[in-house]
Amino acid sequence: MGSLVWRVFAAAVLAALLLVASTAVAIWWTARQDARPSSDAIVVLGSAQYNGVPSSIFEARLEHAAALWEDGVAPVVVTVGGKAAGDQFTEAEAGRDYLLDAGVPAESLLAVPEGVDTLESMRAVGTAFDERGWSDAVLVTDPWHAMRAERMAEDAGISAESSPTRQGPAVQTRATQFRYILRETAAYLLYRVTGESIAGAPGIG
């Protein structure tokens, strides 16, 4: 009996390790993709902002979204994200204002000022899409965040592909990339098991 219990335990541990490893590889693979299909909107996932000024991570996403808009990927750029206690600006508002200054016209921008993490943000964007009869989106976020963002968007009723930014702190060094992949692996598996999101570093919650 003891031998059987040990074999079952060893098989369970091996299965768990294989699941973690395969998820990490899938996150790495998705991060290397760059999909730019014609869509209803480009959705920029929010990150930290400071008194209306996007953080370096957020700025890299916004610059990439502006380039996609200029290339005609979609007629509208959606910025999304709420604000922390004490903040005067939401992430969505900071992103919208940055894109306005970058030359994207107001009629091509939509701010969805909701969400303290990716899951809440994607649900808010899903509602905004439903109200406008939209269905397709290109998501702009950091490479390692792309797979979980796509999954959450699909669960919110959006047909989503991602075009991750290749700039910013999240992609500067191999050590940083490895750390983000580990965090995203844990966050993705938690979401698939519980349907919940977690708080963490920018782009992780």
Rank of each mutant, 00 (worst) to 15 (best):
G2K: 12
V5K: 09
W6D: 11
V8T: 10
V8D: 06
F9R: 12
A10I: 04
A10M: 10
A11T: 13
L14K: 06
A15C: 12
A15M: 13
L19M: 08
V20R: 11
A26L: 14
I27V: 15
W28L: 14
W28A: 15
W29H: 12
W29A: 15
T30P: 05
Q33D: 12
A35S: 14
A35C: 11
P37K: 11
P37D: 10
D40F: 02
L45V: 03
L45Y: 00
G52E: 00
P54D: 11
P54G: 11
P54K: 11
S55R: 09
S55W: 09
S56T: 14
S56P: 06
S56C: 08
I57G: 01
I57L: 12
E59M: 12
A67D: 15
W69T: 01
W69I: 01
E70A: 14
E70Y: 09
V73Q: 11
V73N: 10
A74T: 05
V76E: 04
V77I: 15
T79L: 04
G81H: 01
K83C: 03
A84K: 14
A84N: 14
G86W: 08
F89C: 04
A92F: 04
A92C: 09
Y98P: 01
Y98W: 15
A102N: 00
G103A: 08
V104K: 09
A106I: 02
L109P: 04
E114D: 05
V116Q: 11
V116N: 09
D117C: 06
L119R: 06
S121H: 04
R123K: 13
V125M: 08
T127P: 01
A128W: 02
F129A: 03
R132A: 01
A137P: 04
A137D: 04
V138Y: 00
V138I: 07
V140G: 05
V140K: 06
T141H: 10
D142W: 03
D142Q: 13
P143I: 00
W144V: 05
W144R: 04
W144D: 08
R151G: 00
M152V: 10
A153Y: 06
A153I: 06
D155V: 08
D155G: 09
G157I: 01
I158A: 02
S159P: 02
A160N: 07
A160W: 02
S162Q: 02
S162D: 03
S162K: 03
T165K: 06
Q167F: 13
Q167M: 12
Q172N: 11
T173K: 07
R174V: 13
R174N: 08
R174P: 09
Q177Y: 13
F178C: 06
R179S: 14
L182I: 12
E184Y: 08
A186F: 10
L189E: 03
L189I: 09
R192G: 05
R192D: 05
E196A: 15
S197R: 07
S197D: 14
I198M: 15
G200K: 12
P202E: 05
G205N: 08
